[in-house]
Simulated assay, not measured.
Amino acid sequence: MNAEVELAYVSFTISGDNVAPGFWTGYFGVQPDIAVTKGAPIRGAGGTGTAQRRTGVWGLESRLAVRNDQLGPHLQFLQKRLGLPRADLRALVEQAGARMRFFCYWVNESGNRVPVIPCDIQTMAEDQGIAIDIDEYR
């Protein structure tokens, strides 16, 4: 495998029909990597201009900020950047009818890499209502 290939990174997203990206940008106090509203036009969608976003999404990722082949440092970066845990986060997301997740990108071409989620991050995510999904590529 090419040494330049990223073997791991993580994104955090809040998604749902009622996600208001501006609210979440202000709430977390960080500029997102993605911020789209349900119904917004999708640029370059066949040139017709009729395609629209199916749901709203606000998200931040670790890809450019963390260079590490393990998930822990990526998750810790996002936890710190987002100021997690937050006492009111779960309730706010539920009120918006949205969901949160950490999406973990994991390359395992060799078949011998085991993704590890640190126990404290796993507990914090469960308490906050954040799903953790690992997408493994072989």
Rank of each mutant, 00 (worst) to 15 (best):
E94R: 14
I14Y: 00
N68D: 15
R81G: 03
G129H: 03
N18R: 14
Y9F: 15
F103T: 14
K80N: 09
A87T: 15
F23L: 12
G26C: 11
N112T: 15
L84K: 01
G26S: 14
D69V: 06
T50D: 09
Q70L: 05
Y105H: 11
L64V: 05
G39L: 00
A125W: 00
E94Y: 01
V107R: 13
L92W: 01
W106E: 02
Q122L: 11
D33N: 13
P118K: 12
G59F: 06
R43G: 09
Q128K: 04
G49K: 02
R101H: 06
S15A: 13
E4Y: 10
R90K: 15
S15E: 12
P73S: 01
V5H: 10
W106T: 00
G129Q: 00
A131C: 02
A98G: 07
D135F: 06
G83F: 09
I134R: 00
A40V: 08
F102S: 01
K80R: 14
G49E: 05
T123K: 14
P41H: 03
R67F: 11
R90Y: 05
A96G: 04
Q31G: 15
G111S: 11
V107N: 04
G56E: 06
R81D: 09
N68K: 06
A87R: 12
I121L: 14
T55W: 11
F103M: 05
R90L: 07
H74W: 02
T48K: 07
G29A: 08
R67S: 09
M124C: 06
M1Q: 10
W24Q: 07
R99Y: 08
P41N: 10
Q79E: 14
S110I: 07
A91C: 02
A125F: 01
D135W: 00
R113Y: 07
G44S: 10
Y137R: 12
N68H: 15
A35Y: 07
D88A: 13
M124D: 06
G111A: 06
S11Y: 01
P41D: 08
M100C: 12
G129L: 01
A40Y: 03
Q95G: 05
I132N: 00
L92I: 13
R101N: 11
D135K: 04
G56L: 03
A51N: 04
V114C: 09
R101D: 15
N112R: 14
V66K: 09
G56W: 08
L7Y: 09
D133M: 02
D88E: 12
G129E: 04
Q52L: 15
I130A: 07
E136C: 10
T25D: 11
V114L: 13
D120C: 10
D127Q: 15
V30R: 14
I134G: 00
L64W: 06
E4I: 09
G22C: 08
D88Q: 07
P21A: 12
E136L: 07
W58I: 01
R99P: 00
D133K: 03
L64S: 13
L7I: 04
T55H: 07
